[in-house]
Amino acid sequence: MTTLTLDKLSVGTLEGVNLSLQGGDIVCVSGPSGSGKSRLLRAIADLDPHQGNVALDEIQQGSVPGHRWRRQVMMVPADSQWWYEDVGAHFEPEQRTLPSALGLPPETMNWTVSRLSSGERQRLAIARALARHPRVLLLDEPTANLDQDMTHQVENWLLEEIRARDLIVIWIAHDIGQIERVASRHYRIQGSTLEPVHGSH
């Protein structure tokens, strides 16, 4: 069983975050905008300087090169970026089959990025990350640009993938309905601490 451990993690205004997650766990994090939700994910992915320790099983964050850590602990940002002209170029050749739950036709891989809507970009960004087989997925508001039907569809697909791959997930969400649907635990950023929210689960 994989375990992700945050030990006295401090970044920005957030201080002393202790958290332990097992494979299959989905921890939802909410909080007012500007409270440091994204920075927390960036620190776990080791994209920002921070204090404290993060470990994946026995592997300490600082003991492997940055890119090898991020291959295991992968963040999907709220505004995904695309740097090649074609969608398919962002995927490895053997990874170019899209799950049907995304609601995108298979020929999407041959489209140019410029014709994608923001919702399509967001779904493809998650697929792009999953195709690289991380063990931890850090999702920054993954359904922000989606309508209700598509939100449910993406949630169900993600839940299925998370269960099948035994992924550890930290999921930043605003919508309390979504948190109730997906979270195994829910934390809220209050001032400089991360506090568990009881009652929902």
Binding site: R70, Q72, M74
Partner: peptide
């Protein structure tokens, strides 16, 4: 000007 792209590529586990 392309900082977001570089960071997204880092997030996907690419070497710098």
């Amino acid at each position: 000007s392309q900082r977001s792209i570089i960071e997204n590529r880092l997030m996907l586990g690419e070497p710098w």
